[in-house]
Design a protein around this nucleic acid. Sequence first.
DNA 1: ACGCAACTGACATAAAGCTGTCAGGAGGGT
DNA 2: ACCCTCCTGACAGCTTTATGTCAGTTGCGT
Lengths: 223, 223
Amino acid sequence: MRRTDRLFEIIQILRDGGLHRAQDIADRLEVSVRTVYRDMDTLVASGVPVEGERGLGYMVREQITLPPVNLTSEELEALNLGMAIVAEAADPDLRNAALSLAEKIDAVLPTQTVAEADAWKFAIYPFADAARGFSHMATLRAAIKARQKLSLQYRRIDGTLTQRIIRPLHMEYWGRVWTLTAWCDTRAAFRVFRVDLIEDATALPELFVDEPGKTLADFDPCN
Amino acid sequence: MRRTDRLFEIIQILRDGGLHRAQDIADRLEVSVRTVYRDMDTLVASGVPVEGERGLGYMVREQITLPPVNLTSEELEALNLGMAIVAEAADPDLRNAALSLAEKIDAVLPTQTVAEADAWKFAIYPFADAARGFSHMATLRAAIKARQKLSLQYRRIDGTLTQRIIRPLHMEYWGRVWTLTAWCDTRAAFRVFRVDLIEDATALPELFVDEPGKTLADFDPCN
DNA sequence: ACGCAACTGACATAAAGCTGTCAGGAGGGT
DNA sequence: ACCCTCCTGACAGCTTTATGTCAGTTGCGT
């Protein structure tokens, strides 16, 4: 198991909001306690809101949501930057959308403001492993929107392949990894898939509707 | 010299649009030819438009700019995604701007569209080394806009420190590294600085105006 | 005072990544 | 034909990173 994968797993474990001892996490991931402490360091340094209490264990603080602010050229810059990054990383559809949106905004703005935004024209040469697994994102996005079932071929962390029929519900971004939350028809349970481990995703003609117990609202991260 | 730094250097070398032999690049960067070939592999795999011609050398293809497209919910998604990424990575100002902008857009949209966009609510836990060096970005951006001179403390790749007065002109994003293009008053020449190697940046009260030969338009990447 | 569990530092070892060397192959130009 | 250069694979040595072990410290609760 690669280090990155383990960090991701730790977040998943902590996500239930409960108290977890380093020893338990170590046992579960089959590493030494020392390694868990080092991982926690990394997570904290990366901004994950986790806190350790001596004698107790680890817990995540609830995430703080920020109140809305005012309109400004700050936001314009954020937008340009965001579009530049999306144009670099995401799937072709999004890439085009990002580029056209950026151009459209430039076109609408008064010329003086454009000059400002111009300082942000990006020459983008991704070195990216960031792009790994982005190839399926278009399919997944479309299926979530269309409420279309998917046939998924997935490579588990241990390397084995599985095939399943899922109802895609939700995507999340974890800084390094994208996840797809779905109801798995094959296993009759919620599952979270890492997009970068998806080998193949094919949209099926079959649509699905919300059924009690199978909607995103019913999903509980604590397994 | 770290590998990442070398890749970045290679791009700089190729940027002049000329033909370069692997041997020459190898000599200049003091590595073997084999290593250059491996680096080229990496660059190509990362989307850098470089091409090798047997018997000739390496050249960059000119970048293709895409024609503008139409307005749509694609663009909305690109925007949401972009804001999520910016909120993760950029400096505090941009971060807030991105968050508020995303919220503002959500607020303006009809509820049906919001439901779509909702599938993209991001829980963001950056593992980021992406954030390295972002601490100065706010200062740099502000100085570019205000045409304010900067006192820069910069760590060269060999580890030595330099201090200079610069006129910040332009920022670029290279997928892994941000660069700041500036006229260096101290050296009386254009210089490109890597933002992640900037130790300290202090805005000076002194402003600057465009002088012939010192504007961004006068800058020629081929040293 | 005691136990618990988070922490820290130092060190040895194992795994992974990077690089150079060598030995070739392949396409284009002369 | 020949030369130039890109390009590939294999292997050995080096460097970096990751991990485990050990020995200790710190803060909290009982």
